[in-house]
Design a protein around this nucleic acid. Structure first.
Lengths: 122, 122
DNA sequence: TAACTGTATTACACACCATAGTACGCATTG
DNA sequence: CAATGCGTACTATGGTGTGTAATACAGTTA
């Protein structure tokens, strides 16, 4: 379920955070579905339980999941609009930078088409 | 000439690196023009000279500037194509994320148009 | 010569990341 | 009730990256 890159500069807890966020937003993990326990995920990924706990706590702090001591952790009810807005904000920033670098609007639109022509490449 | 955010998570040397890169690419700092010395920039920004030196060494390593012991550091002859490619790569990544979040190709193209309609807003 | 330049070195402090081990309270299951 | 699994909390340790501090050296320039 999770692949961790130990050589990456990105902290492990952040990799876990991103993975679960992606799965939750995309709907792969449906609302209120239970996540693997801190200990089981730690065992599977061969990572320290503290590291997984840190990821879960960060996910809860940002409202992606909710945790119940004694029961487990579950996917929260997500407002996908917020994540869409954030993605669009990043997109705008990238487009502005490309513009500064001398890339034309047409080229950027072609890139958009190129990305959307491809299938579900995740 | 440089403003440093000491509270930022981005390392100081990386902030200096980014600033100078931006100035060099935009042409604000023309080719072969001399940069402030390590010590003077360190004094102006109230940063340790070693930190500035680290930024300059990274800039030289990536071909943005060249340094001559005893003389100073200067803006290199830049191949703008490299930076255009990098900007496009970032743009693609942002577009893919937006796609994952459920944003349509048309909306993204509208955003591109919106950015290019505006004047030189830097 | 004097004052500048980039560069190199050593040392220290601090924060972040990750691991290890232990412990507590709560919920579920047998 | 007892056992197990759950999230959570805590201390301790080590590694790495960042930033500062203080020198020192060789090359360039006025």
């Amino acid at each position: 379920m999770f692949s961790i890159d130990l050589t990456s500069r990105v902290p492990i807890y952040e990799q876990i955070y991103s993975k679960i966020t992606e799965l939750a937003i995309s709907g792969t993990l449906s609302e209120n579905s239970q996540l693997p326990s801190v200990r089981s995920l730690a065992k599977d990924t061969r990572v320290n339980p503290n590291t997984v706990a840190k990821a879960y706590q960060e996910l809860e702090r940002r409202g992606i999941i909710y945790s119940v001591p004694g029961r487990g952790s579950f996917v929260a009810a997500l407002d996908s609009g917020i994540f869409r807005e954030a993605a669009l904000s990043d997109f705008d920033a990238a487009a502005k930078t490309a513009k500064k670098r001398g890339v034309s609007a047409d080229v950027l639109k072609q890139h958009v088409d190129g990305i959307f022509e491809k299938g579900e490449e995740i």
